[in-house]
Design a protein around this nucleic acid. Structure first.
Lengths: 129, 129
DNA sequence: TGTAAATATGAGTTGTTGTTCATACGTCGT
DNA sequence: ACGACGTATGAACAACAACTCATATTTACA
């Protein structure tokens, strides 16, 4: 889905069963920008490798690139590319000490988001009541 | 990132600065399957259009395909394709009444996940103190 | 029964994403 | 200053994801 197309003011070709509910729901709906911003955040969490990296950083507190790569069993280059994305998104922060660069999670909300997801999507199925 | 490559037991070519921390973190890390399962969930939320659809369904409770399409300003075909994904993932459920099909969210956890994300990533920036 | 409505699906196309490989950059030790 | 190390980055490529268009399916109604 490219991006949100503005709704034509006068519905020209749009079929609707319940126009009132549509209008009411549209009023409460996320704007295109809001949806895009949220989606971008979720997209960062939508790759297994990135997810493991974030998780590893949350666990370890701080890791250099090569250690993180070893931890999640990825190449250093791939790891660096992913970290760049996360850094540009403000999800992680890097500190250079000597020639090694240490990364840490720099987003207060990710931990909660991950905890909620892990709790509901993993424990529910495995620890099962 | 394709999928998780198993870590070689004997680190052959892997540089590490702090092997102990790596090993400790690996012990606490998500497995490849767990990471993939979580990532797949987040991926469903990583598209602005899908996000708006889910949000609309949460708001409206129940919507038929054409009304949902009108609500999020997408084509009915695109909407149907997205709903198929969500349905296969068990995130929404469909009910056929006559010739129209009504969809509703069928995942207890999505609402919480979305609420957390909206709260932290939207309100924080806009309502800003 | 035939036609239109509401949705589903498949094929084809295009844009995006993650990886590898090669290479560049900054830093340490000698 | 030079070579090795740790990391970053760019290009090329392959896999994937989302859209449109065309067509199929099911139901309602005349």
């Amino acid at each position: 889905m490219a991006d949100v197309i503005p709704m034509p003011d006068e519905a020209c070709e749009v079929r609707m069963v319940d126009p009132e509910r549509v209008e009411a729901t549209r009023a409460e709906l996320l704007s295109g920008d809001e949806a895009s911003e949220l989606a971008e955040r979720f997209k960062l969490l939508s790759d297994p490798g990135r997810l493991r990296m974030i998780y590893a950083l949350l666990e370890a507190g701080e890791l250099c690139v090569c250690d993180l790569a070893a931890t999640v069993a990825a190449s250093e280059s791939a790891t660096s590319h992913q970290l760049r994305q996360l850094r540009l998104a403000g999800l992680v922060r890097s500190t250079k000490r000597g020639r090694t660069v240490y990364y840490r999670v720099d987003d207060t909300h990710v931990r909660l988001l991950l905890d909620v997801a892990v709790e509901h999507y993993l424990h529910d199925h495995e620890v099962r009541v």
